[in-house]
C-alpha cells in the first residue's frame, strides 16, 4: 500500500521558539490594539453624539489636518526642536558641572544647594515671562527656560550618582594611592552614569515642555506659538495635530537618550 504519511515529530525546541515568538507578538500587539480601539471609540463618540469640531475634532479630521498642514507643522517644529535640544544641553551640562563642584566641596553645596532648590520651586509659568522680558523675544529666552526645567533633576541625580561609589571601592582607591582626579575619572564618573541617564530621560521630555512654555509667552514661530494660534482661532484639528507633533518631539528626544544609555551603560 502506498500510503504516504506525514509524521510530525514533536520538536520541543521549535515549539518553545514558536511560543516565544507568539509571546513577543502579543506584547507588541496588545498596546497597539488598545490604542487603536480607543481612537476608534473617540471617532465613534464624536460622530455619534455630533460633537462640534471646535470642541473636539474626530481623529480622522486631525489626521487629515496633519497631512494637509504638514509643511506648516514642520516649519514650526524645527525652532522648538532647536530650543529643546539647546536647552537640554545647556541645562544638563550646567547641572553636571555644578554637581561635580558640590561633590568636591561641602561648602559649595551648603552655599548653593538651597538656592537651587528655591529656583526649582518657582513655577516655570511664572518665571517664563520674566525671562522673556529680560532676554527678549528671541531664541535665548526659550533655551534658558528649557535649560532651567532640565537643571534640577539632573543636579540631584548627578550628586547622588557621584556619591554612589561603594566605600570598598574608595578603600581600594586609597590602597592604590589614587589621586583625586583618578578617583573622579575612573570611579566616580562611571558610577554616576546610570543616575545621570535616569535624569536625562526626565529632562529629554521636560526640555520640550520648557521650550513650548517659552514660546507661549512670546514667539512667532514654534509649536508653542502654533498651539496658541490654533486655540485662539478655534482651529481644534490643527491644535490636536500640533499637540501630537509636540509629543512626537518628546518621544524622539526620549528615544535618543534611551538609545545612548543602552550603548553606554552596559552593566
Amino acid at each position: 500500500m502506498a500510503v504516504v504519511e506525514t509524521v510530525s515529530v514533536p520538536d520541543p525546541v521549535a515549539d518553545a521558539r514558536a511560543a516565544a515568538r507568539r509571546e513577543k507578538t502579543m506584547t507588541a500587539a496588545v498596546p497597539i490594539a488598545t490604542a487603536a480601539a480607543l481612537i476608534l471609540l473617540w471617532e465613534v463618540g464624536v460622530r455619534g453624539f455630533g460633537v462640534p469640531t471646535y470642541i473636539a475634532p474626530a481623529p480622522s479630521a486631525v489626521a487629515a489636518t496633519f497631512v494637509d498642514k504638514f509643511p506648516v507643522l514642520m516649519q514650526n517644529f524645527w525652532p522648538t526642536f532647536v530650543e529643546s535640544v539647546a536647552g537640554f544641553a545647556v541645562g544638563n551640562l550646567a547641572a553636571i558641572l555644578i554637581a561635580v563642584t558640590f561633590v568636591h566641596s561641602r561648602h559649595m553645596e551648603r552655599a548653593f544647594f538651597p538656592i537651587a532648590v528655591f529656583v526649582n520651586t518657582i513655577p516655570i509659568l511664572a518665571i517664563a515671562p520674566v525671562l522673556v522680558l529680560i532676554l527678549g523675544p528671541g531664541i535665548t529666552a526659550k533655551v534658558v527656560i528649557a535649560a532651567l526645567i532640565c537643571f534640577f533633576p539632573t543636579l540631584v541625580n548627578m550628586v547622588r550618582g557621584l556619591q554612589s561609589v561603594s566605600p570598598q571601592t574608595l578603600e581600594l582607591a586609597r590602597i592604590l594611592s589614587a589621586s583625586k582626579s583618578e578617583i573622579f575619572w575612573k570611579m566616580r564618573l562611571p558610577s554616576s552614569l546610570p543616575f545621570l541617564f535616569s535624569a536625562l530621560k526626565i529632562s529629554a521630555t521636560t526640555s520640550v515642555i520648557g521650550a513650548i512654555v517659552g514660546e507661549w509667552v512670546g514667539a512667532d514661530l514654534g509649536l508653542g506659538a502654533l498651539i496658541i494660534d490654533a486655540t485662539f482661532n478655534f482651529n481644534s484639528p490643527l491644535l490636536y495635530a500640533t499637540v501630537f507633533m509636540s509629543s512626537g518631539l518628546s518621544v524622539l528626544m526620549f528615544a535618543l537618550v534611551t538609545l545612548a544609555e543602552r550603548r553606554i551603560v552596559r552593566w
Binding site: Q168, T169, E171, L172, I175, S177, M187, L193, R266, W267
Partner: peptide
C-alpha cells in the same frame, strides 16, 4: 602603600561593574 608593597582583597570583590 605608595610603593605598592601590599595589596588588599575585600569581602565583596569591589570590582568596577563597568
Amino acid at each position: 602603600r605608595l610603593a605598592r608593597e601590599f595589596a588588599f582583597v575585600f569581602q565583596d570583590a569591589a570590582l568596577l561593574p563597568w
